[in-house]
Amino acid sequence: MEPDREPTNSVQLQDSFSFEGPVRPRNYTRRKALNLFVKGLLIVAAVLVLYPVVDILYLFAYKGLQVISISRLIETTAGAASFNPHAAGGLANAILGTLFIVGLSSMIAVPLGVFGGVYLAEFSNDNRFSSIVRFFADVLAGVPSIILGYVGFLVLVLRFNLGYSALGAAIVLSVLMFPYTVRATELALKRVPNGIKEGALALGSSKTTIINRLSLKFALPGILTGILLSLSISVGETAPLLYTAGFSDYINWTACCHTQIGYLTYVVFTFYTIPTTNAIDLSYLATFLLILIVLVINIVARVGLRRLSRDLESRI
């Protein structure tokens, strides 16, 4: 017992010494219980929140593997609405359409975005203009995709009279990809060690040469990561395409104009409501393929490219 501690220190004293003993605060049992309770609650919340993703992956992997077949990958959706259970019908037009639109949109967004990012990282010295640009790029990334689609419809489909087309869809998707590409390039370039650039500068290289030959090379994994992830978003977009690409059951499209084009997300969105087994199976298959693409892109971007960038960094 410590007489000098007893009077004002409202902690319980015990007669025999242990660590639970002389300085165990009165509220400690409650606090310890609260600690365990909250931890438990948080873990339960985390599991509940993550469970649907696992369920989504499991459900569509299961369904997808049930319905996948060669013919469904090489035929088009033209026969899908038939009530004949042995009817033909596949996703070839949608798969190719998705790849075509997304490929076209990255051909627009990547050069614009990468060189826009070069300015922010290498030339702007973080001036006022660059902070405005950064801000607007972030705001642009937050614009709902349906608005991009509707504006694309107003401008491209109606005003420029492109009609539904792969080009219009690609332009809208490139607006979606652009801000990610700009910011990813900027971040990746800023992570390139200054020593490299300074070394080259000391050797008398021009800034243009340094950026193109050195900085961009070292920043490549980071830039690719950003591009890939924005591609994965584009692949999964539906709303902007409904208003710009239309849909076609055939592989008859050209880039432009007034030719509708098929894509996977449309199949997911609408085929489920067609009351034939074949159409419903195709919407499962389309979902499965989309998840597969997103999964592969994410793994490549996050695991593969991170390793590549670590290799590059270790060589410095």
């Binding site: 242990s18 660590f19 639970e20 002389p22 300085v23 605060p25 310890k32």
Partner: peptide, 11 residues
């Protein structure tokens, strides 16, 4: 075993 690392810090 019986020592609580949190209470230990009070001492």
């Amino acid at each position: 075993r019986g020592v609580d690392p949190v209470l230990l810090k009070l001492r």
